[in-house]
């Protein structure tokens, strides 16, 4: 009886500690995932045939994709069947390239995409054309100048 009581008390203490510390662990998880440690999420073999078809360009790198990104890709796979044949081809053609970008590059891509669509079509096309015509060394110079500017802005915020 006494042992049972002690066990119950210990179990309750454990339950309470888990309840108190679980949120802290959950909050800590996104910080860990930013280190891009592979693992987690469903294995390629666990996906449905439709999901595998939609995400086919990612088959080779699936194991290295973090679990949060896998959930995002599965969300995209759900939208895939609604696309036209041309849409499907374009999505898949860019998929592997996009997945290979660093998290920082993906963040920049999203920001630039949104920024581009705030502009009128002509201005957007003009910016793309200017970028396309820039020699590689000029592109690099432009990138570095922009990075320095961003770093200075960040430093000012702090």
């Amino acid at each position: 009886m006494i042992d049972g009581g002690k066990r119950r008390a210990a179990a309750r203490r454990l339950l309470l500690a888990a309840a108190v510390f679980a949120p802290a662990l959950l909050l800590a998880r996104p910080a860990q995932s930013q280190n891009m440690a592979p693992a987690g999420g469903p294995a390629w073999s666990q996906l449905s045939p439709q999901q595998r078809e939609a995400l086919a360009p990612l088959a080779g790198q699936w194991t290295t994709i973090p679990s949060e990104s896998k959930r995002k890709w599965l969300d995209i796979a759900e939208k895939y069947p609604q696309l036209s044949p041309e849409g499907k081809t374009r999505l898949q053609a860019r998929m592997a390239e996009f997945a290979r970008l660093t998290p920082e590059q993906r963040r920049t891509a999203r920001e630039n995409f949104q920024r581009a669509y705030e502009l009128p079509r002509e201005s957007r096309e003009s910016a793309v054309e200017q970028y396309r015509l820039l020699p590689d060394d000029k592109k690099k110079e432009l990138t570095e100048r922009s990075q320095r500017k961003d770093a200075a802005k960040e430093a000012q915020k702090k």
């Binding site: 970008l101 590059q105 993906r106 920049t108 891509a109 920001e111 630039n112 995409f113 920024r115 581009a116 502009l119 957007r124 910016a127 793309v128 200017q130 970028y131 396309r132 592109k139 690099k140 110079e141 432009l142 990138t143 100048r145 922009s146 990075q147 500017k149 961003d150």
Partner: peptide, 12 residues
Amino acid sequence: AYADQGFGALLQ
């Protein structure tokens, strides 16, 4: 281009 911060400068 989208993934390049330099393209962001052109857009700005």
